[in-house]
C-alpha cells in the first residue's frame, strides 16, 4: 500500500497549496468577480480534502451546496448588482488597522491553541461499512437529532423570510410610488371536450 500512500500525500500537498493560494486570492484580489470564482476553487479544494479523509458523501455535499448553490448565488448577486463605486478610505485609519490586527491575532491565537491542545494522532479504524452514509444517517437521527432539526428550522425561517421579502404585498408602500406589478388576472379558457 506504499503507492496509495504516496498518492495521498501528494494530493494532500497539492490540495493544501491550492486551498491556501485560492483563499489568499479571494482576500487579495482587487476584482470581486475573480474573488468569487476563487472562492469556488477553495470550496472544491476543501471537498477534495474531505475525499482524502474518506468522507465521500460530505465531499459530494460540499460540492453540491457550496460550489453548486452558495457560490453560484454569490456570483449571481455580483453580476446582477454591478454598481461601480469609488473606493473610499474609512476614516480613523490607525484605529481601524489596530482593530483588524487585534482580531486577526486573537483568531490566530485561538486556532493555535486548539491546534496544540488537540490529540491529532488517531489510530484509524477501518470500518467494514460500504460508506459513511449509513453512519452519518444514524448519527443524525440519534445523537444529533436536536441540532439537525434546529438547523432545518433555521433554514425554514430563512425560506419564509425570503418569500416574504420577495412578495410585494407585504412591503409597505413608499409614498406615492406604486411598486406593485400590474398583472392581468389569469383568465380561464374554456376548453371544448371532445
Amino acid at each position: 500500500m506504499k503507492l496509495s500512500q504516496g498518492v495521498e500525500l501528494v494530493s494532500l500537498l497539492v490540495l493544501t497549496a491550492m486551498v491556501v493560494a485560492a483563499a489568499m486570492g479571494v482576500v487579495l484580489s482587487p476584482s470581486i468577480v475573480y474573488a468569487a470564482f476563487l472562492l469556488g476553487l477553495v470550496f472544491l479544494g476543501i471537498a477534495g480534502m474531505y475525499l482524502l479523509l474518506n468522507a465521500d458523501f460530505v465531499a459530494a455535499a460540499q460540492v453540491l451546496i457550496y460550489v453548486g448553490a452558495v457560490n453560484v448565488l454569490i456570483l449571481f448577486a455580483i453580476m446582477l448588482v454591478n454598481r461601480r463605486k469609488v473606493y473610499r478610505e474609512v476614516k480613523l485609519g490607525a484605529v481601524r488597522q489596530l482593530v483588524a490586527i487585534a482580531v486577526c491575532v486573537s483568531l490566530f491565537a485561538l486556532l493555535l491553541y486548539t491546534n496544540l491542545n488537540t490529540v491529532w494522532l488517531l489510530t484509524p479504524e477501518v470500518t467494514a461499512l460500504p460508506s459513511g452514509i449509513v453512519t452519518l444517517g444514524q448519527h443524525f437521527f440519534n445523537e444529533y437529532l436536536l441540532p439537525f432539526e434546529l438547523a432545518s428550522v433555521l433554514l425554514l425561517v430563512a425560506l419564509i423570510g425570503a418569500i416574504i421579502l420577495a412578495r410585494r404585498e407585504f412591503v409597505p408602500d413608499r409614498g406615492e410610488e406604486n411598486l406593485e406589478l400590474v398583472e392581468r388576472p389569469k383568465e380561464l379558457v374554456a376548453v371544448k371536450e371532445e
Binding site: D56, F57, N71
Partner: peptide, 19 residues
Amino acid sequence: ATGIFLVIAISSIAPIGLL
C-alpha cells in the same frame, strides 16, 4: 457509494463555467 448523488453534485459545477 455516493453514486447518483455524486453525479448531481458534479453537474452542479457546470453553472459556474457558464457564468
